[in-house]
Computed example of a mutant assay.
Amino acid sequence: MRATKTLLPLLLPLLAGACGLREPLRPAPGESMPPAPAMAPRAMTTDELLAPPPIGRPGRVDELLRRSEEREDDRFDLPPGDIPVDTDGASNSQDAPDQ
C-alpha cells in the first residue's frame, strides 16, 4: 500500500503525457479543412490555424518610465458636446439672471 502511494504521484504525469499527440491533427471523418482565405495562394495548415495572430498575443513592451515628462497640449481633447463652453468669458444665458 505504501509503494502505491509513493508511485502514484510519479506515474500520473507519465500517464497524462503518454496520451498526448502522436500524429498530426486531421479533420474529423467526413469533414474538410477550412477553405483558403480570399487572395491567399494556398489553404492554411493545421499549425497555422492553431497559432494565435499577433493581435491575440501582442509583444510585451518592457520600456520603463525613465523620467516624468509634461504632456503636450492636445488640440483634440475637447469637452463633451452637451456641456456649453464659455469661450469669450461671458456667462451663459442660462446662468444670467432674468431682467
Score class of each variant (00 low, 15 high):
residue 1 M to E: 13
residue 1 M to R: 10
residue 1 M to Y: 12
residue 2 R to D: 14
residue 3 A to V: 03
residue 6 T to M: 04
residue 8 L to I: 02
residue 8 L to F: 05
residue 10 L to C: 06
residue 11 L to Y: 02
residue 11 L to F: 03
residue 12 L to R: 15
residue 13 P to N: 01
residue 14 L to D: 06
residue 17 G to E: 04
residue 18 A to T: 09
residue 18 A to R: 12
residue 18 A to G: 13
residue 20 G to Q: 08
residue 20 G to Y: 02
residue 24 P to N: 03
residue 26 R to A: 13
residue 26 R to K: 15
residue 27 P to K: 02
residue 28 A to Q: 08
residue 28 A to K: 06
residue 29 P to M: 01
residue 30 G to I: 01
residue 31 E to I: 00
residue 35 P to H: 02
residue 35 P to W: 01
residue 35 P to L: 02
residue 36 A to S: 08
residue 36 A to V: 01
residue 36 A to I: 02
residue 37 P to G: 04
residue 37 P to F: 05
residue 37 P to R: 04
residue 40 A to D: 07
residue 44 M to Y: 12
residue 46 T to H: 00
residue 48 E to H: 07
residue 48 E to Y: 05
residue 49 L to C: 10
residue 49 L to M: 14
residue 49 L to D: 03
residue 49 L to E: 06
residue 51 A to C: 11
residue 51 A to H: 10
residue 53 P to Q: 12
residue 54 P to G: 07
residue 55 I to K: 10
residue 55 I to P: 00
residue 59 G to S: 11
residue 59 G to W: 06
residue 60 R to H: 08
residue 61 V to P: 01
residue 61 V to Q: 13
residue 61 V to C: 14
residue 62 D to M: 03
residue 62 D to R: 03
residue 64 L to W: 07
residue 65 L to Q: 10
residue 66 R to C: 09
residue 66 R to N: 10
residue 68 S to N: 10
residue 71 R to A: 09
residue 71 R to V: 02
residue 71 R to S: 09
residue 71 R to P: 01
residue 73 D to P: 00
residue 73 D to T: 07
residue 74 D to S: 10
residue 75 R to L: 14
residue 76 F to N: 14
residue 76 F to R: 13
residue 80 P to W: 00
residue 80 P to I: 03
residue 82 D to K: 03
residue 87 T to Y: 11
residue 87 T to N: 05
residue 90 A to R: 14
residue 91 S to G: 13
residue 91 S to V: 14
residue 93 S to D: 09
residue 95 D to F: 05
residue 96 A to L: 15
residue 99 Q to E: 15
